[in-house]
């Protein structure tokens, strides 16, 4: 059987790609998708742990995380639509309210 560390390192790699996407991308949609990717990377390690510890509770937790991700996507995309309607751009540099 594949050692659990393989799955964990894969999950760490996916999470780091998500982090890189959030901090380097200027496109709001790509930033948002990177956040979804990070959620999925965490899910992968939860599933790996629940398999190797033989506890199925991890599956329920992943189920709840999927629900949260769906809610987050709905609200986040609504925010993006509202921003686009006001500023006509999804470039994250263009609507930073705090920067002057």
């Amino acid at each position: 059987m594949i050692p659990v560390t393989h799955y964990l390192i894969l999950s760490a790699l996916l999470f780091s790609v998500g982090v890189a996407g959030v901090i380097s991308s200027r496109n709001l949609i790509v930033m948002f998708m990177s956040i979804e990717l990070m959620l999925n990377a965490a899910n992968l390690s939860i599933i790996a742990f629940s398999r190797y510890l033989n506890i199925m509770d991890g599956h329920v937790i992943v189920f709840l995380v999927l629900t949260v991700a769906a809610a987050e996507a709905a609200v986040g995309l609504a925010i993006i639509i509202a921003i686009f309607r006001n500023r006509a751009t999804i470039n994250a540099d263009r609507f930073s309210l705090f920067k002057r």
Binding site: L44, F63, L77
Partner: peptide, 30 residues
């Protein structure tokens, strides 16, 4: 990978909900 980790149910949920619903919502917005 989920299926390989014996998570049949959650793996199919990942495809149905994530690929099927959430990312299609992204496509719609784009």
């Amino acid at each position: 990978l989920y299926v390989q980790l014996a998570a049949m149910f959650v793996g199919s949920l990942l495809i149905i909900i994530y690929a099927g619903a959430i990312l299609v919502l992204f496509l719609f917005v784009i």
